[in-house]
């Protein structure tokens, strides 16, 4: 599953992620992270035998977890399919289909925000 992990200032110094990796059989992918002494958040993808136990561990350590169904959302009324975003996506999550319509693959998206800040019609937004 994909989720945002929210770190409060109290726990930013704890080694929660490395303990998670050491103690649970999970595979864990950090797609985006912005954590400062004032707290922050991290977009992760977690899977494996003990994914649920791992998630429980994170919650117990005070990491607030919000599952993500969608990382970004595109307003199709605003989008003119110009394709400005295509070459900015570092993970090739944005493609143009056979009818020349711009499509976002939310599974691949890492929420970097390059497309949202560069969209001429402000049609793409990070989903909360």
């Amino acid at each position: 599953m994909k989720a945002w992990l929210n770190f409060s200032p109290e726990i930013v110094n704890k080694a929660v992620i490395s303990n998670l990796m050491k103690n649970f059989d999970v595979s864990f992918n950090i797609m985006n992270a912005n954590i400062t002494p004032k707290g922050g958040k991290m977009l992760i993808e977690i899977s494996g035998e003990e994914a649920q136990e791992g998630i429980n561990y994170l919650e117990n350590q005070g990491v607030h977890l919000t599952p993500v169904k969608r990382v970004v959302k595109k307003d199709n009324d605003k989008c003119v399919d110009c394709g400005a975003c295509l070459s900015l996506c570092p993970v090739e999550a944005i493609t143009i289909d056979e009818e020349w319509k711009v499509e976002l693959d939310d599974q691949k998206c890492i929420g970097c925000g390059f497309c949202t800040s560069s969209c001429p019609t402000k049609a793409i937004k990070l989903a909360d």
Binding site: D81, C82, T95
Partner: peptide, 20 residues
Amino acid sequence: GSVEIDGTKIQTSPMSSYRK
């Protein structure tokens, strides 16, 4: 969707809408 410059694949963006 891409061109090759000096052996590296580089993604392209149309900027104008072909669909429109």
